[in-house]
Design a protein around this nucleic acid. Sequence first.
DNA 1: AAATATTAATCAAACGATTAAATTAGTCAA
DNA 2: TTGACTAATTTAATCGTTTGATTAATATTT
Lengths: 231, 231
Amino acid sequence: MRISEHPPSSKNRSELTRQALLDSATRLFGKHGFDATSNRLLAEHAGVNQALIGYHFGSKEGLYEAVFEHIAERLSSHLAPVLLPIESELQALTGGERDTAKSDVKKRCVNAISTLLENYVCIINFPEFEDSARVIVREQLDPSNAFEIMWNKVMHKYMTALTLFICLSKGRTAPDQSDRLMSITLMGQVLVFRVARASINRHMQWEEPHGADNLEKIQLLIRSNIKKILD
Amino acid sequence: MRISEHPPSSKNRSELTRQALLDSATRLFGKHGFDATSNRLLAEHAGVNQALIGYHFGSKEGLYEAVFEHIAERLSSHLAPVLLPIESELQALTGGERDTAKSDVKKRCVNAISTLLENYVCIINFPEFEDSARVIVREQLDPSNAFEIMWNKVMHKYMTALTLFICLSKGRTAPDQSDRLMSITLMGQVLVFRVARASINRHMQWEEPHGADNLEKIQLLIRSNIKKILD
DNA sequence: AAATATTAATCAAACGATTAAATTAGTCAA
DNA sequence: TTGACTAATTTAATCGTTTGATTAATATTT
């Protein structure tokens, strides 16, 4: 009986190393920050030689930026199936339909916003995105080139959609500053669960990591708050 | 004519050095993080010799913890005049008065919560607290002993008061998990303006730092959201 | 004179980066 | 299938810097 897996080709070997380094870097950069993470620790954690950071990514900073490309792709592909119906809904509300009742528009907008933010709750709280979210937060505290990557590839589209729905829910068609401000306060209600986790675990008397029940409670509260704020 | 200022006594000289180091440390630790800030840069920024970090604070970590003691004191003394009437209001609502109308209780609670959060908006946005807020956020991403200081001296009292008002506004007297969760989402609406500033400046098309008009708009929106959520 | 505070110089350790040598994979003629 | 050649990848060792910490000498204050 033959082992079904191919023996690692050169391309596979290289890709495996890159992936191991990207994963370790996301974890360690997220947990401790760029400067607190040494190349040696990074390599040890990935199970590879530390010179391979230079070989595959040019430098430590190269690896850092590659982490953001990597995260941006993962987030995009996670958000794609969510954004697809959202954006067709957006087009239906802005262009296609003319005789939609006002109250119906508002209801559909609030629904869309809830969908967006509940998905954001997942990204913020799922263990698989935990490190990614931390890396992004750190980058925002002291932005470099890497922030551009994240903003252009993921955030911009998300924030724009959210803001547009808020605008539409108020019966207008062109978003203004108050809509954008509102979108930020809505995002904040979710983001806080990643950023202030140390305080939250104290305040809620949770032990990390909190489970699915807590996640559901958070989603319910967010949905309820959105409804109250926008209705 | 004599110079009116005292010549620096030894105590003054020592205290001046400590203050200069604490200020620089707050700024640089907040901006770039603990590990990205070297003792040499710290000392240069403070205009003192780098060996004085060891002399006055024992070590770099000693300075870091001293920064948190320092920040905790500054925040406490800034919050004291805010919390004083708030806590007497709290006592009035929980203990003293018996014949207060329900609608009146709710109104007073919402008012108290607005006061607390508007003050939080100031702390988050005032330039004089900017670095402090950043240091605290960084610490929450990877908590050490320093977080204990901040939680015990400032955050705990603030969060407890906020949660209790939320609970009272619902006509109950003992806060439960849903009240605590609500307090977190309220905090999040404000906190986001410090944490996600890079994204916000993009989204709002602001140039940093944003002025007093923006601050007022934020406060108005927060107050409006609180009212809608809690009514 | 004694205590306190500051300075310049130096320590070993850890840092990111780079090197030359070794190993592995892919290609192709025989 | 084999063996030889090339390219890609990995390894161990070392480079010059920078790090936090410490020292002994100096300056200041009491």
